[in-house]
Write a protein that binds this DNA or RNA. Sequence first.
DNA 1: TTAAAAATATGATATTTATCAGTAATTTAT
DNA 2: ATAAATTACTGATAAATATCATATTTTTAA
Lengths: 229, 229
Amino acid sequence: MESRCENCIIRQFNSLRAMSKEELKKVSDSKTTKTVKKGESLFEEGDKLNGVYCVRNGVSKLSKLSANGKDQIVKLATKGEVLGQRSVISQESTNLSAIAVDDMEVCFIPKESINNTLQKNPNFTLEVLRHMAHDLKEADDVIVNISQKTVKQRMAEAFLYLKNNFGEDEDGFLALTLSREDISNVVGTATESAIRIISEFKKKGLIHTSGKKIGIKDERKLLEMVEGF
Amino acid sequence: MESRCENCIIRQFNSLRAMSKEELKKVSDSKTTKTVKKGESLFEEGDKLNGVYCVRNGVSKLSKLSANGKDQIVKLATKGEVLGQRSVISQESTNLSAIAVDDMEVCFIPKESINNTLQKNPNFTLEVLRHMAHDLKEADDVIVNISQKTVKQRMAEAFLYLKNNFGEDEDGFLALTLSREDISNVVGTATESAIRIISEFKKKGLIHTSGKKIGIKDERKLLEMVEGF
DNA sequence: TTAAAAATATGATATTTATCAGTAATTTAT
DNA sequence: ATAAATTACTGATAAATATCATATTTTTAA
């Protein structure tokens, strides 16, 4: 397994590609690689982060606990994404927890390397900025979705999102398998409601399931449902 | 009215303060000042922006239209805030409309001045980045709020937000007066529901009203309501 | 491998919220 | 100043969603 950042392909997908050779070398020297088992956390809401995590493998859910004890999943981050950036940049504690949904492999990069480059390399800063602008746009879309769409529509949207972002396995099931509870936390609904809608979608032939696994059967109809037909 | 950016106090509240004297001079020479009447728009969802708007006075609502024809207000921007930045940075059309809630005075700064500085002045870029990181954190909070809190809780929260961010007038009413419809669009609910909850809060002595104007009477109880007691 | 625990599933019911219908009050334009 | 248009408000009802209870299946750990 390649362990020098300079040669890491993952880097092509995130802002680290805007780093100079020397900067990358420094990052490479200061970074540590970690394995995180399914269910373990990278960091928890309220933690002060001493660096960022670059995801090499696996998927992490970024979530926030609400007063009534339910988690809301704000984002699912996979290969290539950098976690904790916002917290490091604004020098505040994180507002989100990052928990592994899969077994993960991540690189921890101490904040000094990041902050140094942010101050010296405008290209890097601009690249980070572009990513954050994109994330913000997505967050706005989520806000509008949650407040204007029904739970059914959001469920349909969630399945399409999972297909588009994580793909399908050989058997036509969504490659990323989430528990019913996680699905309900992405959609922002009660777990029972999520399960009920899964049953309904199954009856209607929109999806098929096998244990936890869910496969999309009628993408067109799901899309129509999202649009409100 | 001062019209040179170099001497504009508003600048202290936004990322423009990280610009050098020369950069500011250029911005000042290329900018134009506009007056926007209540109800008029600065830009509309889908527009390609040729620059950013620096708010000198008044308040603008940033909103997005949903499929069912209802607007969702994502942010209320006031004095000192820079609008359209995200769109200019990511070189995409805006996903939001900006409409004046008050009569406004804004400066339009062509994107060239911004992009130039972004490429040359890392301090400026970093400052913009910090602001965006903050906005993103706020957006995440909104997501969690909307999906986990009841309409009543979100209404209570909206009133507290309006007080904290826009203050009160001499008579103890919220300084920013929104229509019932706008309030419902901030909270993400039907206008009738918003009105109903206003009536209820009034009966319970949490707020008082006079026409459109709303005043906070029992902040403590509103806070408790937000927290879920 | 088997008992315990956790996750999934479904029904019954309660609660929340939206929608529709209509009136009253306020604002706008003439 | 007055009519028209918009906005605010209220009630009745429908629809969506959450909650509680409980059964079944799957996973975990001894």
